[in-house]
Amino acid sequence: MRLTDHGGGRGTGDGRGTGEGRGTGEGRGTGEARAPGDPGGPEPWLALKKGDWLTFRDEGHFVAGGAGGMDYLVGARREIEARDRDSGLRVAAWTLYDLQAEGRGDCRFAVFHSGEEFELRFYFATSFFARGTRDNLVDRAQTWFFLPPPDPEDFVSSALEWAPWPDLPPFDAGDGREVKRTWGPAGFGQTVYGFMDDDEGEDLPVQLVEYATEDDSPNSLLLLVEERWMRPDGAVPPEGGFVSLFAGRRIAETDITHLPA
């Protein structure tokens, strides 16, 4: 099953690669456990613990953090699941870890996995987008992600549809330049309705949309997540759910070093 338009992920074959030898206290890179191109699964990346350290050595971090890459402390773990409505089977999941590093803002390490495919990604909160409910976005005129309603003077925020082609303003995607780029659908190419586990073990309804740009950009991915768009009783709050936006890129396993807590 191919889920993305651009490479970066790796087929997992038979789902081997459970991260044997981990947790020994040695600073061995998880990526070093497998030679590039070897079949492996996402399991080692799904088993990260709070307090672990990750060091990214990919190009973006060379540029931003110097030749030594950038170290991040792993925080809370959340998982967004998308299930097939009819069968109830899990179709795909996005496992998101909070990352903490001084002066780096709100960052996430993401493991996208679906069947035998998985991808590792690094995301960070964009500076141009302030999180909030749909109403908050509309009040701030941040309507780039929505399709225009039939009557732009009179509408309900929660009824707005996510646009496949958002008209985003120029922003810095990580290279220090504010550039206007063309963003289009990526991943499933449409809104994914799923559930995210919260700290109390409750499944929160989530809408998730992925975008990508083919323009010159060190971070060519966008991940838009709307939490709690539906109440537990099935009602839809008119103000909409809480919307977050992250920009990011795919990262090869070999560009990440994992240091267990």
């Binding site: 509309v138 309507t143 009179d154 309900v156 929660s158 496949p164 082609w165």
Partner: peptide, 17 residues
């Protein structure tokens, strides 16, 4: 649902294409 009815000018919307 209560509708938003304040003037909405200068908005930039996304598109289907």
């Amino acid at each position: 649902m209560p509708k938003l009815s304040s003037p909405r000018s200068g908005f930039t919307w996304g598109s289907r294409q």
